[in-house]
Simulated assay, not measured.
Amino acid sequence: MTEPILEVTGLTKEFPIGGGFGRRKETLVAVGDVSFSVLPGEVLGLVGESGSGKSATARCVMRLIEPTRGTVRFAGEDLLALRGPGCAGYGVACRWSSRTRTPHWTPG
């Protein structure tokens, strides 16, 4: 059986909000317990409503922002455990598309 090239398990990203003078500090859950895997040669598309956490998920996977918890493994290596120069060079790419750029194509 082929092993996944990318495996994301229990990915969560929370942002603190509020907490000003006299106010309770709250937490915004931008990504909640997301899990998926991608086999070599596969392509994954994240689809959802505006504000549903698609971009935050992609940014966590690419380590542009640090997830609150979860694991991200690429080629069997835990990306969240890497520090320093070992973080770069994995060739993970993110493409944001818009219907206005490709009006002749509809997902489905």
Rank of each mutant, 00 (worst) to 15 (best):
Phe36Asp: 00
Phe21Met: 14
Val34Ser: 04
Glu26Trp: 00
Arg99Lys: 12
Ser37Met: 04
Met1Gly: 15
Arg59Ala: 05
Gly19Trp: 08
Ala81Asn: 04
Thr100Asp: 14
Cys94Leu: 14
Gly19Arg: 09
Leu6Phe: 06
Met1Asp: 13
Gly53Leu: 08
Gly76Val: 07
Ile5Gly: 06
Leu6Val: 12
Leu28Cys: 02
Thr100Cys: 12
Leu6Ile: 11
Gly86Leu: 09
Ile17Arg: 09
Ile5Met: 13
Pro107Tyr: 07
Tyr90Pro: 06
Leu82Gln: 11
Val34Leu: 12
Val92Lys: 02
Thr27Ser: 04
Val43Leu: 08
Arg101Val: 06
Glu7Asn: 07
Gly84Phe: 03
Leu39Met: 12
Glu26Pro: 00
Thr102Gln: 06
Leu79Glu: 06
Val34Asp: 06
Thr27Arg: 09
Ser50Leu: 00
Ala81Phe: 00
Gly32Asp: 15
Pro103Lys: 02
Gly91Asp: 10
Ser97Met: 15
Arg23Gly: 10
Gly41Pro: 07
Leu64Asp: 02
Ala75Arg: 14
Val34Ile: 15
Gly70Met: 06
Phe15Leu: 11
Leu82Cys: 06
Ala56Glu: 02
Ala75Tyr: 05
Gly51Pro: 11
Leu44Phe: 08
Val92Ile: 15
Thr102Asp: 10
Thr100Gln: 13
Leu46Asn: 03
Arg23Pro: 03
Ala75Cys: 05
Ser98Asp: 15
Ala88Arg: 15
Ser97Gly: 13
Gly32Ala: 12
Thr100Pro: 00
Leu64Glu: 03
Ser50Lys: 00
Arg99Asp: 05
Arg24Leu: 12
Leu39Tyr: 03
Gly84Tyr: 02
Thr2Lys: 14
Ala93Trp: 02
Val38Tyr: 05
Leu46Asp: 05
Gly20Val: 08
Cys87Tyr: 00
Thr106Gln: 10
Val38Met: 13
Ile5His: 09
Leu82Tyr: 01
Val43Asn: 04
Ala56Ile: 01
Asp33Tyr: 07
Gly18Asn: 10
Gly70Glu: 07
Gly76Asp: 08
Gly86Ile: 01
Gly18Phe: 09
Val29Asn: 01
Arg24Gln: 15
Thr100Phe: 11
Gly84His: 06
Ser55Thr: 15
Arg83Met: 01
Val38Arg: 09
Thr71Asp: 00
Gly53Trp: 04
Arg24Val: 13
Met62Gly: 04
Val8Met: 12
Pro107Arg: 06
Val31Asp: 04
Gly84Ala: 10
Asp78Asn: 13
Glu14Leu: 14
Gly48His: 01
Ala93Thr: 14
Phe15Tyr: 15
Thr68Leu: 02
Trp96His: 13
Val34His: 07
Phe74Cys: 10
Gly76His: 09
Cys94Phe: 13
Gly32Pro: 01
Leu80His: 08
Gly48Val: 03
Ser97Asp: 09
Gly32Tyr: 09
Gly108His: 11
Gly18Arg: 10
Gly53Gln: 08
Ile65Gln: 05
